[in-house]
Structure formats: structure tokens, C-alpha cells
Design a protein around this nucleic acid. Structure first.
Lengths: 206, 206
DNA sequence: GTCTATATACGGATAGAC
DNA sequence: GTCTATCCGTATATAGAC
């Protein structure tokens, strides 16, 4: 018989509760408008515990940005792609997942990374790099799909460019939909991207 | 002999200087991180003058958002489109203008409306509507180009959808380029959009 | 209309007991 | 590791003389 699983960080440690609370609050209200008091309230902790776990507010942000990277596959991609094997349909299923976020929140928020990226105007280099890493991992995951699609897409279409364009479509669509509080602009953008893909596949088939 | 031109708002009134200062500062640093002291310093005015001209900070934001709408054609579109008559080339010239903004600021800021739209997470309805109006006017201007392109684009492509998709491309590209401090993602997105347009025009020609 | 001084609130961070 | 109390800077906004 084996011992119960041990994790370095027990799931409900104060530190973990602070991270979990910040993860949600930064997505909902942004970084600056989330006060440490907000985080403490949500995590049911006190100022002393916060500064025992983190030197300063920004260190929590860094931890949260690392966490977003870690959660990308298990929390976002894996459930979204469950049961979908076609790599191109996986791309659109991912976009569909963001549409669900929009609908579930009445278009209040879409992508936390995108929001933080534009909120933090001159972020510390270390913050900026972690935001960039989040984008890079997302793009890399989509690029894998495109590579798997192989000859179904024209040979001369750069897969990295196309993956970035898909992120562009998601972020630009989310931004407009949040502002209009309707999914219309998001849907319009995904429709156009779909049409582009249809054309690319047709082109590759000839 | 005619009298010198009279404007309702003299160009260098304190109120105008405050608006001009805020217009730039909100674009550079965002709304929340721009303090009234920052604005006063840049406009060389004092707190008393500010609150004589505006009831509160948010009223200045509303005025600035109105101003962005007013400036869209004379300051952004007209110079960008000068000498360019082809409506489709106008679309890409506009995107090229945003690339210049990125390059000129070392990818520090691109579109002030997009930045404000994502910074203000739960904006007052009136703020949100003015942001939405800015997007709508931009989209409408691009849509005019697409309508002017007429039969060069397939009949069944919704012009409004496509215009929104072009805004999506710009905003999504700017977001990634700001985060990476490179124009790469912006350029990749515009390249993909260009390819889409080439395909659409080919399709319309058959 | 413009000036300085200031009221008031809030946020990040710290101190020090337990 | 956690608690409360508090320091201190900064921000919006106001008061009231000029």
C-alpha cells in the first residue's frame, strides 16, 4: 500500500487560497482594481498571511501568470478537445470555448491574459515576459493542430503566422464583444476565420 | 475684410489643454494610472482649473472619448488615405498606419480605444457606449471601403462582418505586438488577412 | 477663472503580539 | 503561520482667497 499523495503545496494552504482568489479576481476586475483587501476577503485570510506568503502584490501576479501557463492544457485545452480528433475542428472548438466564457459572463470578460496585457501599460519586464509566455504557449498549442492538419492546408502558409492570427481573431473578437456586450463581433470574426479556412483547405486540395 | 475665425472653444483654453493632455496620457498610460496631477502638469494648469472645467475625472474621460470620435476622420483616416483611391488598399493602408504607431513607440502602445476598452472592466454604461461608438465608427469607415469595392468581393460576404474582422485583426495584432515588443504578430496577422483578401477577390472574379 | 492649501479615503505594506 | 493595528504615500475632490 502506498502513502496518500503528497504535494509540495497542500491544495488548501493559505498561499494556495490566495493564488486561487487572485486568479479569479484579476480575470474579473483586472490587476490594479483588485485590492489586496479584495483578495484577502475572497481567500478568507489576513494581511499578515499575505505578506508572509508574498513579498508584495506584484509577486502574486507573477505567481498567477505562471499558474495560467500551467493550467492551459489541463483546464482549458484538454476538456475543450475531449472527443474532438480533427485538428482543424479543435481550433474552432477552442474559439467556441471562449464564446462560452463570453456568454456565461454576459460578455463581461473573455481572456484574462489579453485583459492583463492591455491593462498593464508599462509592465516590469518580468511581468511582460510571463504574459508573452502565456501567448506563446497558446499559439504553440494551436500551431500543433495546424501541423497535424498537414497537407490539408497549403504548403506555403506559415503555421506560426496562422496560429498567431487565430489568437488575434480570438482576442480582437473578445475585445469588441466585451465592449458591445454582445457576441456579435466575436461571432462575425470567427465566421470570417472559418471562411478563410475553407478557402485554404480548398486551395490545398487542388 | 472678414473678422478672424471664431471658434466656440478657443484652441488654447485651459479646458482644451486639459483635454489634449488627457488624450495623450490616457493613450500612453491608461485611465487609472493617469492621475489628475499628471494631467495638470502636462496641461500646465492647477487643480482649481480642472474642477472648474470638469465635475470629475470621469467627465474628462467622456469628453476625451467624444474627441476620439471627432478626430477619427480628420486625424486618422484622411491623412492615411491621402493619395490612395483603391478601397481595398485603403483598408491595408489603415492597418499600416497602426504599424507606424507601434514602430514609433517601440510597440509600447497601439490603439487607445482598445487599451481603454480592456482596462475599464466594468465601466459606467455611458463610458462603455462611447467606447462602442468609437469601434462602430471605425468599422463603418472600413465598411464603406468594402462597399466601394463592390463586385471585387464575393456577393455573399457580409460587409459588416468583414469590417469587424478587420478591426479584430488590428486589435488582436496590436495586443500581441505590445506584449512581445515586436511587430511580428501584427505583421503575421496582416499577412494572413491579406491572403484572405486575395482569395476573396479571386473567388469574386470567377 | 485661477491659485494654494487641505479634507478625506483608500491602497500597499509593516510591526509586533500570539 | 496568523492576527490586529497602524504607518505612509498617493489620489480624488473641495474650500476659499484672489
Amino acid at each position: 500500500m502506498s502513502a496518500p499523495p503528497r504535494t509540495a503545496e497542500p491544495a488548501s494552504s493559505t498561499r494556495e487560497r490566495l493564488i486561487a482568489a487572485a486568479l479569479e479576481l484579476f480575470a474579473e476586475k483586472g490587476y490594479a482594481s483588485t485590492s489586496i483587501a479584495d483578495i484577502l476577503h475572497k481567500a478568507r485570510a489576513n494581511a499578515g498571511s499575505f505578506y508572509y506568503s508574498f513579498p508584495a502584490k506584484q509577486d502574486l501576479l507573477l505567481t498567477v501568470l505562471d499558474r495560467y501557463v500551467e493550467l492551459l492544457r489541463p483546464v482549458l485545452l484538454a476538456p475543450t478537445w475531449e472527443g474532438i480528433t480533427d485538428p482543424i475542428e479543435r481550433v474552432f472548438a477552442l474559439l467556441g470555448r471562449y464564446r462560452v466564457y463570453l456568454v456565461d459572463t454576459e460578455c463581461l470578460y473573455g481572456c484574462p491574459i489579453g485583459s492583463l496585457a492591455l491593462e498593464l501599460h508599462e509592465p516590469d519586464p518580468v511581468v511582460r515576459e510571463k504574459l508573452a509566455l502565456n501567448f506563446d504557449r497558446w499559439v504553440a498549442a494551436v500551431e500543433e493542430c495546424l501541423l497535424e492538419a498537414g497537407g490539408r492546408l497549403p504548403r506555403d502558409v506559415n503555421r506560426t503566422d496562422l496560429a498567431r492570427f487565430i489568437l488575434t481573431t480570438m482576442e480582437g473578437g473578445v475585445m469588441q464583444s466585451r465592449t458591445h456586450r454582445t457576441t456579435e463581433a466575436f461571432d462575425a470574426s470567427v465566421r470570417m476565420l472559418r471562411r478563410f479556412f475553407v478557402q485554404l483547405q480548398r486551395e490545398a486540395a487542388t
